[in-house]
Amino acid sequence: MTQLLIEGRGLSLTRQGTAILSNVDIHVGAGEIVTIVGPNGAGKTTLVRVLLGVLAPDGGTVTRKPGLQVGYLPQKLHVDPVLPLGVRRLVTLTKRASRAEVDAALVEVGGLHLAEKAVSGLSGGEMQRVLLARALLRRPDLLVLDEPTQGVDQTGQAEFYELLRTIRDRRGCGIVLISHDLHVVMAATDRVICLQHHVCCAGAPRTVAGDPEYRRLFGPAAAEFAIYSHRHDHGHDLHGNPLPCDHDHGHAHTHAPTASDEVRP
């Protein structure tokens, strides 16, 4: 049986007479990727803050594994461009670590070549990998990522989510994603929770993609974006440039269909 990492039951939160969360149930187990989707203002980030103990709910309970270690990637991290901050320093700002530990974390996210760069010179995709390395230094039982590919191009999004699956498989940690990148995330996750202050629907990606509530929130085309995938015989670098590789090492690659793509049923 999968080890339970965190669970919320009947979570409710009201602010200024408006229900932000209403009787929300959620649980995340070890080795599971759970994605919370919903329109802007649906309460996604608030739900995560309640789960992590940053906010206290008005109703309901939260249960966490004793000693739960959490690695968190914020939605946006502003770094003053005039601040002389290097990647190694950023990675160790909130946790002391040896050079070898920092390098190992950067290797795991494919970012060792960024180690000596200034943070101000990083692209969006590079920054997210550095922040992920920073989170991994905590040896987390649970990774929480809030809109992790905001500002990253479509190819970079798919590569980042593929990296998350690899980390999950290697470490056995649980992962919670908050995202609007439905065309990529739905195929990269084990379970989806569709939130609009309450849980509209939840389950496996294909189940949620066909749910009337999901289609009502995101439109009928959302289901096609959610389940489309194909295979490549190449990889990509952090900027989305193709990298040739053997046919035997091609990888699954999910993206939104374009006019030239054949959408599979």
Rank of each mutant, 00 (worst) to 15 (best):
163 L>M: 11
164 L>Y: 06
164 L>M: 10
165 R>G: 14
165 R>L: 11
165 R>F: 00
166 T>Q: 15
167 I>N: 02
167 I>P: 10
168 R>C: 07
168 R>P: 03
168 R>I: 09
169 D>R: 05
169 D>G: 13
169 D>T: 04
170 R>C: 10
171 R>V: 09
172 G>R: 11
173 C>L: 15
173 C>W: 05
174 G>F: 08
175 I>A: 12
176 V>G: 15
176 V>A: 05
176 V>L: 15
176 V>E: 09
177 L>V: 04
177 L>H: 05
178 I>W: 02
178 I>T: 07
178 I>N: 10
178 I>R: 04
179 S>F: 12
179 S>Y: 08
180 H>P: 01
180 H>C: 04
180 H>Y: 04
181 D>E: 13
181 D>P: 06
181 D>I: 00
181 D>L: 03
182 L>Q: 11
183 H>R: 12
183 H>F: 02
184 V>E: 06
184 V>W: 05
185 V>R: 01
185 V>A: 13
185 V>H: 01
185 V>L: 12
186 M>K: 07
187 A>K: 11
188 A>H: 10
188 A>M: 13
190 D>M: 04
191 R>Q: 09
191 R>Y: 09
191 R>M: 11
192 V>E: 09
192 V>K: 00
192 V>I: 13
192 V>A: 01
192 V>T: 09
193 I>Y: 15
193 I>D: 14
193 I>V: 15
195 L>N: 10
196 Q>A: 13
196 Q>C: 04
196 Q>K: 08
196 Q>S: 14
197 H>N: 15
198 H>N: 14
198 H>V: 11
199 V>F: 14
199 V>W: 12
199 V>C: 09
199 V>Q: 07
199 V>E: 11
200 C>K: 12
200 C>D: 09
201 C>I: 14
201 C>T: 09
202 A>I: 04
203 G>S: 08
203 G>M: 07
203 G>R: 05
204 A>M: 09
204 A>P: 13
205 P>M: 08
205 P>W: 00
205 P>I: 10
206 R>M: 03
206 R>T: 12
206 R>W: 05
207 T>Q: 15
207 T>F: 07
207 T>S: 12
207 T>C: 06
208 V>E: 10
208 V>S: 07
208 V>A: 13
209 A>I: 00
209 A>P: 01
209 A>T: 01
210 G>Q: 15
211 D>Y: 07
211 D>E: 12
211 D>K: 14
211 D>P: 08
211 D>M: 08
214 Y>I: 03
214 Y>S: 14
214 Y>F: 15
215 R>G: 11
215 R>C: 03
215 R>W: 00
216 R>I: 06
216 R>M: 05
216 R>D: 03
217 L>E: 10
217 L>A: 06
218 F>N: 00
218 F>R: 03
218 F>H: 08
219 G>L: 00
219 G>D: 02
220 P>S: 09
221 A>F: 02
221 A>Y: 01
222 A>H: 06
222 A>V: 04
222 A>I: 02
223 A>W: 00
223 A>E: 11
223 A>R: 04
224 E>H: 13
224 E>K: 11
224 E>V: 10
224 E>G: 03
225 F>S: 06
225 F>G: 14
225 F>R: 06
226 A>N: 02
226 A>Y: 00
227 I>Q: 05
228 Y>L: 05
229 S>H: 10
230 H>M: 09
230 H>Y: 04
230 H>W: 05
230 H>V: 02
230 H>T: 08
